[in-house]
């Protein structure tokens, strides 16, 4: 295997412009699929630990961090060679994480343990563990690095954690089964999606008050099946794309009015997503159908579906 990668690597290096890639974690295959953004094809499949879910690159894209949930480890991969360099201590069952803007601290949701673990990736040590609600999953960090959010699926809360003191300074209730959180609009708002509640709650980060809620409605689909999970905003922060799980659609949301402007059909149980570097394409992971839908952002339509591994979950872009 390694010989093949080495060969590939040389071939890549021989070319002047390296195409950007979308990396996808395949939860039930213990692999990553690497999609070339120019050809829209899978060009590499890489082995990981057990049940890879959250994935994220470091600031200069020289390392990929992988939540290998069932291996109870965060793995660190060299994205050039596909080699696992080492495991970080992560606490049990890491599901999702966020890398602090300092590029040094990973904040990890430990789903089975009801804790958030902070790991220093340089010293490879656990800096802190914070008790949170049951089944923590969604992780977000404010642009100024001062607040980290953990959402807990069964406790139905967003926990606001001070990154200096590692203490929770607020807890806000959201609808049932929160899955994903993001700071948006320069960190002035926090958005939290609730899978079973079928909503996204919008909070003012200044006072942690809820200031709005996004609702979804698709003709011919029962509301119970419209389950928002992952979401991404365009760089101008004016438009959000929201994955709606088993309704097999992505919603396009106006972030000012919080109204839905349209729905895009995707593969089955659409989960997380990542933009191409130029933000012209959006790639969604579709857990049940085992593929990735490519969306033309300007046209707001699906243009291609790419077969990946079993139960694709996380997505990350590498320029």
């Amino acid at each position: 295997m390694r010989v093949i990668y080495a060969g590939l690597l040389t071939a890549c290096l021989a070319q002047p412009a390296l195409a950007a890639e979308i990396w996808v974690s395949n939860e039930k295959d213990d692999t990553l699929s690497v999609i070339d953004i120019d050809t829209l094809e899978v060009i590499r499949t890489l082995k990981t630990g057990e049940r890879p879910r959250g994935i994220t690159f470091n600031a200069d894209f020289t390392r990929l961090y992988i939540c290998a949930s069932d291996s109870d480890a965060v793995q660190v991969m060299d994205p050039e060679t596909g080699e696992i360099l080492f495991d970080l201590p992560s606490g049990e069952d890491p599901e999702q994480f966020v890398l602090h803007p300092d590029d040094r601290h990973l904040w990890i949701a430990n789903e089975d343990d009801a804790v958030t673990t902070v790991v220093d990736v340089d010293s490879r040590t656990v800096v802190a563990q914070i008790n949170v609600g049951i089944e923590p999953e969604g992780m977000a960090v404010s642009p100024d690095g001062k607040t980290v959010i953990t959402t807990s699926e069964t406790t139905n809360m967003a926990h606001w954690i001070d990154t200096e003191s590692h203490e929770i300074y607020a807890n806000t209730l959201v609808d049932s089964r929160p899955r994903h959180a993001e700071f948006v609009k320069d960190g002035t708002e926090l958005w939290v999606s609730s899978e079973i509640g079928g909503t996204i709650s919008v909070f003012d980060t200044g006072n942690q008050n809820e200031i709005g809620k996004i609702h979804f409605e698709i003709k011919g689909v029962h509301p119970d099946l419209i389950q928002p999970v992952g979401f991404e905003l365009t760089p101008d922060q004016k438009t959000a794309f929201v994955a709606l799980g088993p309704s097999n659609h992505v919603a396009v949301v106006n972030t000012e009015t919080l109204e839905v402007e349209g729905y895009i059909l995707t593969g089955r149980r659409v989960w997380h997503m990542a933009f191409s570097p130029d933000h012209r394409l959006l790639f969604t992971t579709n857990g049940v159908s085992g593929d990735v839908t490519v969306i033309d952002v300007a046209k707001r339509e699906a243009i291609k579906s790419i077969k990946v591994g079993r139960f694709p979950w996380g997505a990350a872009m590498r320029p």
């Binding site: 929770i168 300074y169 607020a170 807890n171 806000t172 209730l173 959201v174 709650s201 942690q208 008050n209 809820e210």
Partner: peptide, 12 residues
């Protein structure tokens, strides 16, 4: 939800 948030901030 807003009320509960308030309660919670208080309890912290």
């Amino acid at each position: 939800v807003a009320a509960a948030g308030l309660l919670c901030a208080l309890c912290v």
